[in-house]
Design a protein around this nucleic acid. Sequence first.
DNA 1: AATAGTATTGACCGATACGGTTAATGGAGG
DNA 2: CCTCCATTAACCGTATCGGTCAATACTATT
Lengths: 207, 207
Amino acid sequence: MNPKFYALPQEKQRAILNAGFHVFSQNTYKKSPMSEIAEAAGISKALLFHYFQNKKELYLFLWDTCAKITVEEMTRSGVYEQTDLFGSMDSGMQAKLRLIRQYPDISTFAVRAFYEKDPEVSADIQKSMGQYLNAHAAKKLEKLDSEDFIPGIDLQMMYREMYWATEGCLWEYIQRGIMDVNAMEKDFRALLDFWKKVYLRKEREDL
Amino acid sequence: MNPKFYALPQEKQRAILNAGFHVFSQNTYKKSPMSEIAEAAGISKALLFHYFQNKKELYLFLWDTCAKITVEEMTRSGVYEQTDLFGSMDSGMQAKLRLIRQYPDISTFAVRAFYEKDPEVSADIQKSMGQYLNAHAAKKLEKLDSEDFIPGIDLQMMYREMYWATEGCLWEYIQRGIMDVNAMEKDFRALLDFWKKVYLRKEREDL
DNA sequence: AATAGTATTGACCGATACGGTTAATGGAGG
DNA sequence: CCTCCATTAACCGTATCGGTCAATACTATT
């Protein structure tokens, strides 16, 4: 990667990143043309090849950047410091929303890249991945105090259920292709409130 | 579409359908080559063009067939007869699983086709769609008796949440690309049991 | 075995799209 | 006017695309 890329004004950098995220998220690696990315970024194909030697380099750069940005945003919102379950879900959600606001296609790109099978890139992707996967969830679960929740509930199942629901909600927006972050936030918050009312012992006793 | 297609042995028909669902679900309409579909189906490209005049015809045929099969499978599992909420979710789930078992990529195809923007096909897709969308959910909600559920719960939110969770769970499998239907069934059933325990008044009173 | 009819394909066509290069253009600073 | 660098239009060889067609393989009938 040409270091001059970083000398670009931030908005132009973001435009290029987003163009890459978008095109690579809609099609396979092989079927995602550089010309389309350049056009979506508002620059010429030649200039894109000036910043990135070839398609593979751009792709892997996007992958690394994607991981970097994500971790940055997570720490920034204090996900790793939270102890309370709903609190950490809340800040995790906020991190995700900030991410999507800046890079609408980053989640879709991340998923597709992770499962990409093209031999030209798949090995490199998998190699750089090992670290990121979450032993996080397990730790979070251990810390939960079952006294806080309604009696007899399966906490692990509860956690998986909540995870799936947020993903399902997010997916609905992704499919639709319109990333209305405000509407998303509303939905997420409604979910959180709903869960608190249903799962927390204190809340239930008030009824 | 050449009527001789229906004269083919069922397994061959399914192979072609699945090949189409698969290729069109991985890439945009424009970037999904007929050659790839033919190869995935185990026939020559020429033969594929013998059954379907052109790419567009095949695509729309897949779309119609997709709708047809889905409705068939739904009625067969009696989704529309069920009155009880969890009962109808159960049979709906079973219909979906049977679908996926026979046509692993049909859900992904359906979603992509629905949001496809290529002017060559998008109009036809949207035109034939109007009917299918669910006024179903609304009706289901009206019939619910709030006495059956824990007090103070927002039934509409509960329904949305359950819908998202199943979609999120399904998505996890889709992304991974391995449609392990048995594992999926286990997950779905665990979700249903979990919900019954948490949401139903009778169940909660037993604790 | 010869024939007729059908299922299936390899080879081909013109057009286009691809990744990547290069020589030229444009503009800002001295 | 000159230098330097960002930026691009035009180009190159190749691969792939949708679609066709003439030829082959296969099956059933006589």
